[in-house]
Design a protein around this nucleic acid. Structure first.
Length: 349
DNA sequence: CAACCGTGGTT
DNA sequence: TAACCAAGGTT
């Protein structure tokens, strides 16, 4: 027997069935109690998956509870106005998600009789549902053998199988989807397996300092066997952030209402913004206003833009028309608005 | 396919 | 504190 043959005979080939069983068993014992795991109502699973896109679970929880209380059924969501849905989403970010979720609910009512589809192919035809979310709804809500790859899964499989590609590259994602497919095909309960994979990613196989001693598949992990669990996956190259300054105007009427404007551009469409002196980020048309005293400044980061906001008192020279509206600060929760608005209103008289 | 979309918590 | 990040989708 040659050395290579000896190695091939003794090195354990990764066994997808064994990995899947260990993750399913671990999930049964260690899963966190989350509201959308309560009965796995497909509508609730859908809402949770969209909210969780690029958003931490702890941030999502209160939004999810409020959202399903406000829109208890898929039919209720489909019957709501875009304003109402965006208002419930305010502060959560990526506001296109909310608009597509509502559009998707309307489509499911029209095309699927109000029942969330259970196949990946059907789910992919719904706005806001891509490859990941389709697999998540099919497997978590309907217990179908559909693979999923999110940030957690990409990280875990890159360690389990010692994949060298950098995070965020198509090469890593392709390899991860292939591995995720093999694994979910070998599992018994896709709902438990897929969530187990992500839950291990969130609680154990963390980006930094993975807790390999707590990991149910540590013995299957090639990165751990070679002492590189903390080194993989290789980091991604990040986009540069740009600096930007924007002047905001706090303009109130006699009743204490604040002047805001409904944006209609591609960015944060249909959200209400404060009047501002910048047209590169926001799309407001010039407002005939006088700039008063500087009330304060604050910083706010929007994706790749780092913005220094300066808040000025202001006064309108003529009655604003069109998309402008006077908003009662007490009723802000009914008005769709990005988070910087709330920060700026701190300087209200 | 690379760039873009929001936010707040963590390090 | 600045960088990094979190259950992606769309264009």
């Amino acid at each position: 027997m040659t050395f290579a043959e000896y190695n091939n005979a003794t090195l354990q080939a990764p066994d997808p069935g064994q990995i899947a069983r260990r993750l399913e068993r671990w999930f049964a014992r260690h899963q966190r109690p989350l509201p959308w795991r309560n009965g796995y109502d497909p509508y609730h699973v859908w809402v949770s998956e969209v909210m969780l896109q690029q958003t931490r679970m702890e941030v999502v929880l209160p939004y999810f509870e409020r959202f399903v209380a406000r829109f208890p059924t898929l039919q209720a969501l489909a019957g709501a106005t875009e304003q109402e849905v965006l208002a419930a989403w305010s502060g959560l970010g990526y506001y296109r998600r909310a608009k597509m979720l509502r559009a998707g609910a309307i489509e499911v009512v029209a095309r699927f009789g109000g029942t969330v589809p259970s196949t990946v192919d059907e789910l992919l035809t719904i706005p806001g549902i891509g490859r990941y979310t389709a697999g998540a709804i099919a497997s978590v809500a309907w217990n179908r053998h559909a693979p999923i790859v999110d940030g957690n899964v990409a990280r875990i499989v890159s360690r389990l199988f010692a994949i060298e590609h950098s995070l965020g590259t198509p090469a890593l994602m392709n390899a991860a989807w292939q591995r995720a497919t093999e694994l979910v095909d070998a599992c018994k309960t896709p709902r438990a397996f897929n969530q187990g994979l992500m839950e291990v990613g969130a609680l154990v196989c963390k980006p930094r300092n993975p807790s390999c001693l707590l990991c149910p598949v540590a013995n299957d992990c090639v990165a751990r066997a070679t002492g590189r669990a903390g080194e993989l996956p290789r980091p991604k190259v990040k986009a540069e952030t740009r600096e930007l300054s924007i002047a905001l105007y706090l303009i109130t009427d006699r009743k204490g209402r604040v002047l805001m404007r409904r944006e209609s551009g591609p960015l944060m469409n249909a959200m209400y913004h404060l009047p501002h002196g910048d047209t590169s980020l926001l799309t407001g048309s010039p407002l005939a206003a006088a700039r008063g005293e500087l009330l304060g400044t604050f910083r706010h980061t929007v994706t790749t833009r780092r913005i220094e906001f300066s808040v000025y008192a202001g006064a309108v020279k003529q009655h604003p028309r069109g998309e402008y509206a006077w908003i009662d600060p007490e009723a802000l929760h009914d008005v769709p608005h990005p988070s910087y608005v709330r920060k700026a209103l701190r300087w209200l008289p």
